[in-house]
Design a protein around this nucleic acid. Structure first.
Lengths: 143, 143
DNA sequence: TTGAGAATGAGATTTATTCTCAGAATGAAT
DNA sequence: ATTCATTCTGAGAATAAATCTCATTCTCAA
Protein backbone atom coordinates (compact mmCIF):
# COMPACT_ATOMS: atom_id res chain seq x y z
CA UNK A 1 0.00 0.00 0.00
CA UNK A 2 1.33 3.38 -0.89
CA UNK A 3 0.24 3.62 -4.49
CA UNK A 4 -2.63 5.89 -3.54
CA UNK A 5 0.00 8.60 -3.71
CA UNK A 6 0.83 7.84 -7.30
CA UNK A 7 -2.81 7.59 -8.32
CA UNK A 8 -3.64 10.89 -6.69
CA UNK A 9 -0.56 12.59 -8.11
CA UNK A 10 -1.44 11.51 -11.64
CA UNK A 11 -5.01 12.65 -11.17
CA UNK A 12 -3.97 16.10 -9.97
CA UNK A 13 -1.48 16.46 -12.78
CA UNK A 14 -4.08 15.57 -15.37
CA UNK A 15 -6.29 18.32 -13.98
CA UNK A 16 -3.59 20.96 -13.67
CA UNK A 17 -3.91 20.86 -9.89
CA UNK A 18 -1.12 20.84 -7.34
CA UNK A 19 0.04 18.24 -4.85
CA UNK A 20 0.29 20.40 -1.76
CA UNK A 21 1.31 19.50 1.77
CA UNK A 22 -2.21 19.54 3.19
CA UNK A 23 -3.42 17.29 0.39
CA UNK A 24 -0.61 14.83 1.07
CA UNK A 25 -1.38 14.79 4.77
CA UNK A 26 -5.08 14.24 4.14
CA UNK A 27 -4.43 11.45 1.65
CA UNK A 28 -1.99 9.70 3.98
CA UNK A 29 -4.32 9.93 6.96
CA UNK A 30 -7.27 8.64 4.98
CA UNK A 31 -5.27 5.60 3.89
CA UNK A 32 -3.54 5.06 7.24
CA UNK A 33 -6.46 2.83 8.19
CA UNK A 34 -8.96 0.75 6.28
CA UNK A 35 -11.95 2.14 8.12
CA UNK A 36 -14.87 4.25 7.00
CA UNK A 37 -14.43 7.86 7.99
CA UNK A 38 -16.19 11.18 8.24
CA UNK A 39 -14.83 14.70 8.20
CA UNK A 40 -14.91 15.18 11.96
CA UNK A 41 -13.00 12.01 12.72
CA UNK A 42 -10.53 12.67 9.98
CA UNK A 43 -9.98 16.20 11.25
CA UNK A 44 -9.28 14.95 14.80
CA UNK A 45 -6.91 12.32 13.48
CA UNK A 46 -4.99 14.80 11.36
CA UNK A 47 -4.83 17.37 14.15
CA UNK A 48 -2.92 14.99 16.38
CA UNK A 49 0.14 15.50 14.19
CA UNK A 50 -0.58 18.55 12.07
CA UNK A 51 -2.03 21.65 13.68
CA UNK A 52 -2.14 23.53 10.43
CA UNK A 53 -4.64 21.66 8.31
CA UNK A 54 -8.08 23.21 8.30
CA UNK A 55 -11.52 21.68 8.03
CA UNK A 56 -12.09 23.70 4.86
CA UNK A 57 -9.21 21.97 3.12
CA UNK A 58 -10.49 18.56 4.15
CA UNK A 59 -13.88 19.43 2.72
CA UNK A 60 -12.18 20.64 -0.44
CA UNK A 61 -9.96 17.58 -0.81
CA UNK A 62 -12.59 14.89 -0.40
CA UNK A 63 -14.24 15.59 -3.78
CA UNK A 64 -10.82 15.25 -5.38
CA UNK A 65 -10.24 11.88 -3.71
CA UNK A 66 -13.63 10.79 -4.98
CA UNK A 67 -13.05 12.02 -8.51
CA UNK A 68 -9.68 10.30 -8.61
CA UNK A 69 -11.41 7.01 -7.78
CA UNK A 70 -9.63 6.46 -4.47
CA UNK A 71 -12.64 6.74 -2.20
CA UNK A 72 -16.41 6.93 -2.50
CA UNK A 73 -19.26 8.33 -0.56
CA UNK A 74 -20.64 5.67 1.70
CA UNK A 75 -23.49 5.77 4.15
CA UNK A 76 -24.83 8.78 5.98
CA UNK A 77 -24.98 8.34 9.72
CA UNK A 78 -26.02 10.74 12.47
CA UNK A 79 -26.42 13.55 9.95
CA UNK A 80 -22.85 13.17 8.76
CA UNK A 81 -21.58 12.02 5.39
CA UNK A 82 -19.28 9.01 5.60
CA UNK A 83 -16.68 7.84 3.12
CA UNK A 84 -14.84 4.61 2.40
CA UNK A 85 -11.85 3.41 0.39
CA UNK A 86 -12.26 2.04 -3.08
CA UNK A 87 -8.60 1.73 -4.02
CA UNK A 88 -7.19 -1.56 -2.74
CA UNK A 89 -10.54 -2.78 -1.48
CA UNK A 90 -12.90 -5.37 -2.82
CA UNK A 91 -16.49 -4.36 -3.39
CA UNK A 92 -18.69 -4.86 -0.39
CA UNK A 93 -22.10 -4.02 0.97
CA UNK A 94 -23.12 -2.87 4.42
CA UNK A 95 -25.36 -4.20 7.12
CA UNK A 96 -25.83 -1.28 9.48
CA UNK A 97 -27.10 -1.82 13.00
CA UNK A 98 -29.49 0.97 13.88
CA UNK A 99 -28.97 0.53 17.58
CA UNK A 100 -25.20 0.34 18.11
CA UNK A 101 -24.06 1.78 14.78
CA UNK A 102 -21.94 -1.27 13.96
CA UNK A 103 -21.21 -1.74 10.27
CA UNK A 104 -20.84 -5.27 8.94
CA UNK A 105 -19.08 -5.47 5.59
CA UNK A 106 -19.96 -8.33 3.26
CA UNK A 107 -18.76 -9.40 -0.17
CA UNK A 108 -21.26 -8.41 -2.84
CA UNK A 109 -20.26 -9.80 -6.23
CA UNK A 110 -23.61 -11.49 -6.80
CA UNK A 111 -25.77 -8.44 -6.13
CA UNK A 112 -23.55 -6.29 -8.28
CA UNK A 113 -23.79 -8.57 -11.26
CA UNK A 114 -27.57 -8.56 -10.95
CA UNK A 115 -27.61 -4.79 -10.69
CA UNK A 116 -25.36 -4.62 -13.73
CA UNK A 117 -27.82 -6.73 -15.68
CA UNK A 118 -30.75 -4.52 -14.67
CA UNK A 119 -28.81 -1.38 -15.54
CA UNK A 120 -28.06 -2.78 -18.98
CA UNK A 121 -31.76 -3.40 -19.55
CA UNK A 122 -32.46 0.27 -18.80
CA UNK A 123 -29.48 1.51 -20.77
CA UNK A 124 -28.00 2.98 -17.60
CA UNK A 125 -24.25 3.36 -16.97
CA UNK A 126 -23.40 2.64 -13.33
CA UNK A 127 -20.60 4.65 -11.77
CA UNK A 128 -21.08 3.64 -8.17
CA UNK A 129 -23.02 0.96 -6.34
CA UNK A 130 -24.88 1.47 -3.13
CA UNK A 131 -26.03 -1.78 -1.65
CA UNK A 132 -26.95 -2.43 1.93
CA UNK A 133 -29.57 -2.80 4.60
CA UNK A 134 -30.42 -1.38 8.00
CA UNK A 135 -31.63 -3.36 10.95
CA UNK A 136 -30.39 -4.96 14.14
CA UNK A 137 -27.18 -6.88 14.72
CA UNK A 138 -27.10 -10.11 16.68
CA UNK A 139 -25.89 -8.53 19.92
CA UNK A 140 -28.46 -5.75 19.99
CA UNK A 141 -31.26 -8.15 19.16
CA UNK A 142 -30.45 -10.63 21.93
CA UNK A 143 -31.05 -8.42 24.93
CA UNK B 1 -55.87 3.21 -1.89
CA UNK B 2 -57.09 5.02 1.16
CA UNK B 3 -56.10 2.50 3.77
CA UNK B 4 -53.06 4.55 4.69
CA UNK B 5 -55.47 6.44 6.86
CA UNK B 6 -56.47 3.36 8.78
CA UNK B 7 -52.90 2.17 9.17
CA UNK B 8 -51.79 5.54 10.46
CA UNK B 9 -54.77 5.88 12.77
CA UNK B 10 -54.08 2.50 14.33
CA UNK B 11 -50.44 3.34 14.75
CA UNK B 12 -51.18 6.63 16.49
CA UNK B 13 -53.72 5.00 18.73
CA UNK B 14 -51.29 2.30 19.75
CA UNK B 15 -48.85 5.00 20.77
CA UNK B 16 -51.33 7.20 22.57
CA UNK B 17 -50.89 9.89 19.92
CA UNK B 18 -53.59 11.94 18.27
CA UNK B 19 -54.84 12.13 14.69
CA UNK B 20 -54.83 15.87 14.19
CA UNK B 21 -55.79 17.93 11.16
CA UNK B 22 -52.22 18.75 10.15
CA UNK B 23 -51.27 15.07 10.36
CA UNK B 24 -54.24 14.12 8.19
CA UNK B 25 -53.34 16.75 5.62
CA UNK B 26 -49.72 15.65 5.54
CA UNK B 27 -50.66 11.98 5.19
CA UNK B 28 -53.15 12.71 2.40
CA UNK B 29 -50.71 14.87 0.49
CA UNK B 30 -47.92 12.33 0.80
CA UNK B 31 -50.17 9.63 -0.64
CA UNK B 32 -51.84 11.85 -3.24
CA UNK B 33 -49.07 10.82 -5.63
CA UNK B 34 -46.77 7.83 -5.93
CA UNK B 35 -43.64 9.90 -6.25
CA UNK B 36 -40.62 10.27 -4.04
CA UNK B 37 -40.76 13.47 -2.05
CA UNK B 38 -38.75 15.76 0.17
CA UNK B 39 -39.86 18.21 2.83
CA UNK B 40 -39.62 21.29 0.64
CA UNK B 41 -41.72 19.85 -2.16
CA UNK B 42 -44.23 18.47 0.26
CA UNK B 43 -44.48 21.83 2.00
CA UNK B 44 -45.15 23.64 -1.26
CA UNK B 45 -47.75 21.08 -2.24
CA UNK B 46 -49.55 21.34 1.07
CA UNK B 47 -49.42 25.14 1.08
CA UNK B 48 -51.44 25.31 -2.13
CA UNK B 49 -54.51 24.29 -0.16
CA UNK B 50 -53.65 24.74 3.49
CA UNK B 51 -51.92 27.88 4.62
CA UNK B 52 -51.79 26.75 8.21
CA UNK B 53 -49.49 23.74 8.19
CA UNK B 54 -45.95 24.52 9.23
CA UNK B 55 -42.64 23.04 8.18
CA UNK B 56 -42.03 22.04 11.78
CA UNK B 57 -45.08 19.81 11.79
CA UNK B 58 -44.02 18.17 8.56
CA UNK B 59 -40.61 17.45 10.05
CA UNK B 60 -42.34 16.08 13.13
CA UNK B 61 -44.79 13.91 11.20
CA UNK B 62 -42.35 12.19 8.87
CA UNK B 63 -40.76 10.07 11.61
CA UNK B 64 -44.25 8.92 12.55
CA UNK B 65 -45.00 7.92 8.97
CA UNK B 66 -41.75 6.00 8.92
CA UNK B 67 -42.34 4.29 12.24
CA UNK B 68 -45.82 3.29 11.16
CA UNK B 69 -44.33 1.56 8.13
CA UNK B 70 -46.03 3.75 5.53
CA UNK B 71 -42.93 5.38 4.10
CA UNK B 72 -39.17 5.00 4.34
CA UNK B 73 -36.16 7.15 3.95
CA UNK B 74 -34.93 6.92 0.42
CA UNK B 75 -32.01 8.56 -1.29
CA UNK B 76 -30.39 11.84 -0.38
CA UNK B 77 -30.18 14.27 -3.25
CA UNK B 78 -28.90 17.86 -3.40
CA UNK B 79 -28.32 17.86 0.37
CA UNK B 80 -31.94 16.99 1.05
CA UNK B 81 -33.37 13.81 2.53
CA UNK B 82 -35.90 12.13 0.27
CA UNK B 83 -38.66 9.71 1.17
CA UNK B 84 -40.74 7.13 -0.65
CA UNK B 85 -43.87 5.08 -0.08
CA UNK B 86 -43.68 1.57 1.25
CA UNK B 87 -47.38 0.94 1.78
CA UNK B 88 -48.99 -0.27 -1.43
CA UNK B 89 -45.69 -0.40 -3.29
CA UNK B 90 -43.59 -3.33 -4.35
CA UNK B 91 -39.95 -3.38 -3.37
CA UNK B 92 -37.71 -1.65 -5.83
CA UNK B 93 -34.22 -0.30 -6.25
CA UNK B 94 -33.01 2.94 -7.78
CA UNK B 95 -30.79 3.89 -10.66
CA UNK B 96 -30.07 7.57 -10.11
CA UNK B 97 -28.76 9.73 -12.94
CA UNK B 98 -26.18 12.10 -11.54
CA UNK B 99 -26.65 14.57 -14.35
CA UNK B 100 -30.40 15.05 -14.75
CA UNK B 101 -31.53 13.64 -11.40
CA UNK B 102 -33.86 11.12 -13.02
CA UNK B 103 -34.71 8.13 -10.84
CA UNK B 104 -35.34 4.80 -12.53
CA UNK B 105 -37.18 2.30 -10.34
CA UNK B 106 -36.55 -1.39 -10.90
CA UNK B 107 -37.91 -4.57 -9.34
CA UNK B 108 -35.43 -6.03 -6.86
CA UNK B 109 -36.62 -9.38 -5.60
CA UNK B 110 -33.42 -11.17 -6.57
CA UNK B 111 -31.04 -8.81 -4.81
CA UNK B 112 -33.17 -8.81 -1.73
CA UNK B 113 -33.17 -12.57 -1.41
CA UNK B 114 -29.39 -12.59 -1.72
CA UNK B 115 -29.10 -9.86 0.89
CA UNK B 116 -31.41 -11.84 3.14
CA UNK B 117 -29.16 -14.86 2.82
CA UNK B 118 -26.07 -12.82 3.67
CA UNK B 119 -27.82 -11.24 6.63
CA UNK B 120 -28.73 -14.66 7.95
CA UNK B 121 -25.12 -15.72 7.76
CA UNK B 122 -24.16 -12.75 9.92
CA UNK B 123 -27.11 -13.17 12.27
CA UNK B 124 -28.41 -9.75 11.24
CA UNK B 125 -32.10 -8.80 11.20
CA UNK B 126 -32.89 -6.56 8.23
CA UNK B 127 -35.52 -3.87 8.73
CA UNK B 128 -34.99 -1.93 5.55
CA UNK B 129 -33.18 -2.52 2.29
CA UNK B 130 -31.18 0.10 0.51
CA UNK B 131 -30.18 -1.02 -2.95
CA UNK B 132 -29.22 1.16 -5.84
CA UNK B 133 -26.58 2.71 -8.03
CA UNK B 134 -25.55 6.11 -9.31
CA UNK B 135 -24.40 6.88 -12.81
CA UNK B 136 -25.66 8.23 -16.10
CA UNK B 137 -28.96 7.56 -17.81
CA UNK B 138 -29.18 6.83 -21.52
CA UNK B 139 -30.21 10.37 -22.51
CA UNK B 140 -27.46 12.11 -20.59
CA UNK B 141 -24.84 9.71 -21.88
CA UNK B 142 -25.74 10.13 -25.55
CA UNK B 143 -24.92 13.78 -25.96
C1' DT C 1 -68.38 19.66 28.68
C1' DT C 2 -64.18 19.23 30.72
C1' DG C 3 -59.35 18.57 31.57
C1' DA C 4 -54.97 16.41 31.14
C1' DG C 5 -52.00 15.53 27.86
C1' DA C 6 -50.50 15.95 23.26
C1' DA C 7 -49.78 18.94 19.16
C1' DT C 8 -49.18 23.22 16.78
C1' DG C 9 -46.99 27.48 14.46
C1' DA C 10 -43.51 30.73 14.54
C1' DG C 11 -39.27 31.69 14.95
C1' DA C 12 -34.81 30.80 17.21
C1' DT C 13 -31.14 27.41 17.25
C1' DT C 14 -28.02 23.95 15.83
C1' DT C 15 -24.66 22.11 12.95
C1' DA C 16 -22.64 20.01 8.68
C1' DT C 17 -21.06 21.90 4.70
C1' DT C 18 -19.83 25.64 1.54
C1' DC C 19 -18.10 30.11 0.47
C1' DT C 20 -15.04 34.37 0.68
C1' DC C 21 -10.84 36.57 0.55
C1' DA C 22 -6.26 38.11 1.46
C1' DG C 23 -2.00 36.04 1.80
C1' DA C 24 1.03 31.76 0.92
C1' DA C 25 2.63 27.89 -1.73
C1' DT C 26 3.36 25.40 -6.17
C1' DG C 27 5.79 24.23 -10.23
C1' DA C 28 6.87 25.22 -15.18
C1' DA C 29 9.81 28.11 -17.59
C1' DT C 30 13.69 30.62 -17.50
C1' DA D 1 17.92 29.35 -8.02
C1' DT D 2 14.36 33.06 -9.46
C1' DT D 3 10.22 34.47 -11.39
C1' DC D 4 5.39 34.55 -11.89
C1' DA D 5 0.85 33.08 -13.16
C1' DT D 6 -1.94 30.15 -11.04
C1' DT D 7 -3.69 27.44 -7.60
C1' DC D 8 -4.25 26.70 -2.49
C1' DT D 9 -4.77 27.65 2.14
C1' DG D 10 -6.64 28.96 6.85
C1' DA D 11 -9.89 31.50 9.32
C1' DG D 12 -14.03 32.74 9.93
C1' DA D 13 -18.43 34.18 7.84
C1' DA D 14 -22.39 32.39 5.42
C1' DT D 15 -25.85 28.94 4.08
C1' DA D 16 -29.49 25.95 4.80
C1' DA D 17 -31.68 21.52 6.39
C1' DA D 18 -33.30 19.79 10.38
C1' DT D 19 -34.32 20.29 15.32
C1' DC D 20 -35.82 22.60 19.32
C1' DT D 21 -38.48 26.01 22.41
C1' DC D 22 -42.47 27.75 24.20
C1' DA D 23 -46.82 29.84 24.71
C1' DT D 24 -51.18 28.67 22.87
C1' DT D 25 -54.52 25.46 20.84
C1' DC D 26 -56.49 21.11 19.88
C1' DT D 27 -57.92 16.04 20.96
C1' DC D 28 -60.45 12.72 22.87
C1' DA D 29 -61.75 9.75 26.74
C1' DA D 30 -64.49 10.15 30.63
Amino acid sequence: MGNENLVFKKFLLSKGLKLTKPRKIILDTVFATHEHFNVDGLYDQIRKKHKDVSRATIYRTIPLLIESGLIKQSLRCLAKDHYEHIYGHGRHLHLICEKCGKIIEVESKETESILNKLAKKHDFKIREFNIGAKGLCEKCRNK
